[in-house]
Amino acid sequence: MNSQLKPVFTNQKAFIPFVTANDPNFDTTVQNIVALAEGGADIVELGVPFSDPVADGPVIQAADLRALKDDPDLPMDRVFDMVVEARKQTAVPIAFLTYVNIVFQYGYDAFCQRCAELDIRGLVIPDLPFEERDELAPIAERYNVDIIPLITPTSGDRIAKIAGAATGFIYVVSSLGVTGERSQFNNDLTGLIAQIRAVTDVPAAIGFGIHTPEQAAEMANIADGAIVGSACVNIVAEYGTQAPAKLRDYTRQMKAAVSGVAKNPAV
C-alpha cells in the first residue's frame, strides 16, 4: 500500500491537531482546517460528529453535540463538502476521526472513494478494533486510505498484531480512558513505543490528553508526533466563529514545541 501519511513523519516530528466538523458551523470548520494548516499542522484530524461518541471524553462529546444541535441529520456529504471547500485553500494531509457506523451507513466503498477524491488519507475509527478491521481495510487499501489503528496501555500482547498490520501511522493512546486534558500520562509510554518499534517502522504518534507545549514536546521526544484533540476543541468551544485565528496561533506554538524549537522553554 502506498501510504500518503507515513512520509509526513520523514525527518520530522509531526503535530496533529483535531477539530470536530460542523462545530460550530460549516464555514468555521473550513476556516479551522485552513488555519491549522497555516499554523503548521502536519496532518489535520477532522472529527465526524456522532450522536454517541463512546470513546470520547466530555470535551469532544460536547463538540459533537454542538455540531449536531441544529443539524441532527447532518449528511456525511456536508462533511465531505467542508473538505471540498478547505481543499481550495490547502493541501494539508487530512485524516477523519469517525465512528464506524457513519462509514458503514455511507457504504465502505463509497466512503473510501470519496476520501481518496478529496485526499483524505487516513481513517481513525475508535470502535473498529483489529479483529473487525478486515471488513473495511481491504477496501480502504484499494483507495490508498490508511486505517490508523489505536494502541493503548492495555493492548499488551495485541501490540504485535496491531502494529504489524498498521499503515500510515499508529495512534498511541497515552493513558487509560477517554479523550480529555490530563496532567498525568501512563508512565510507561516509552516502553509502549519500544514494543511498537520492535515490530514496525510505521510511525507512532501519541494522543489523548495532551494540551501544553511542554507535554507535546515530551511526547514528540518519545514518539514520532503528538495528537491534540480536546485542547483544540476547547478553543473552538470558547471562541466559536473566532476560533480560526486562535487555532493558528496555538498550532504554531505546538508545532514549534514538537520540533524542539520552542521559543520559551520551561522558565
Binding site: 478494533p129 493503548t152 493492548s155 495485541r158 496491531i162
Partner: peptide
C-alpha cells in the same frame, strides 16, 4: 454481532 469496541477494552 462482533466486537466493535475501543481498543482499551479489547484485552478485557
Amino acid at each position: 454481532g462482533g466486537q466493535y469496541i475501543p481498543e482499551t477494552l479489547m484485552n478485557e
